[in-house]
């Protein structure tokens, strides 16, 4: 009981937990938005320009897939993030805070998400694409009216995975000035040895991930008519 009272009176909980949670949610939501906005078209392009795709362009596929996506993905996120600090400062005017962190988070997750999109699109049978083409669809119509809707369960699952990854990355971003729950756990839990705050932070993050996963699974099931 006493432990609980102490915990509830700890300024780390009363003052810092809520703003940190909001910052994490902010970072995650914004990064998800931009990741999907850029990563979805990139994933479609990866699939379309590939051999046997709707518009095979070998050099473009090599540049996008082999160079941009693979190189970005092979750099460990912690290193990528630090190296992107000057770029983030250039884009949003500051190197600190959740908004600055969003820049590096987004750049770090776009290639990851694009690959997941590519995989989801690959699951749409070529017969459906043929059927759409035979009925006189333009390539744009095939993508918008057939491939994306048919791949929707996979795309929802890909987005869920990306959000969960972003929650994890955002905690890492917190360490280099991004704020949020990562910062809270580091400052209170690690620097000040307040393990109770550390535990509470972990619980909050675990809950977040659980809620996202449950919502994602529910949505994926809802759009799946297969």
């Amino acid at each position: 009981m006493e432990f609980l009272t102490d915990l509830l009176n700890n300024p780390g909980i009363t003052k810092a937990l809520w703003p940190a949670t909001v910052e994490t949610l902010q970072m995650t939501a914004l990064s998800t938005l931009f990741t999907v906005l850029v990563g979805l078209p990139l994933g479609i392009l990866l699939h379309a320009t590939d051999k046997g795709g709707l518009a095979p362009v070998r050099w473009l596929n090599v540049v996008l897939s082999g160079i941009i996506v693979n190189i970005t993905r092979s750099i460990p996120f912690a290193i990528l993030m630090v190296s992107l600090i000057p770029f983030a400062a250039l884009v949003v005017g500051t190197a600190l805070g959740p908004i600055a962190a969003t820049v590096s988070l987004t750049i770090g997750t776009i290639p990851f998400f694009a690959r997941l999109v590519e995989t989801a699109l690959r699951d749409v049978s070529s017969g459906k694409v043929d059927a759409a083409l035979v009925m006189g669809s333009t390539r744009m119509q095939v993508i918008r009216k057939v491939m994306v809707p048919e791949a929707m369960p996979g795309l929802v699952a890909a987005t869920t995975t990306t959000v969960v990854t972003l929650i994890g990355y955002s905690a890492m971003a917190g360490l280099i000035g991004g704020g949020g729950l990562g910062r809270l756990a580091y400052n209170y839990g690690f620097v000040r040895f307040e393990s109770d705050i550390m535990i509470v932070t972990i619980i909050v993050i675990v809950l977040m991930v659980q809620i996202v996963q449950i919502l994602g699974d529910w949505l994926a099931k809802k759009v799946d008519h297969r």
Binding site: K128, D130, A131, A132, M135, P149
Partner: peptide, 29 residues
């Protein structure tokens, strides 16, 4: 292409669309 209507071995219907929406597809185009 619209002068030839094509029927496939595995129908190749769009799973995300209802029966009516499948038939409507070529008309939407």
């Amino acid at each position: 292409r619209r002068r030839i209507g094509m029927v496939f071995q595995h129908a190749n219907l769009f799973d995300s669309r209802t029966t009516a929406q499948n038939v409507a597809y070529p008309l939407e185009l």
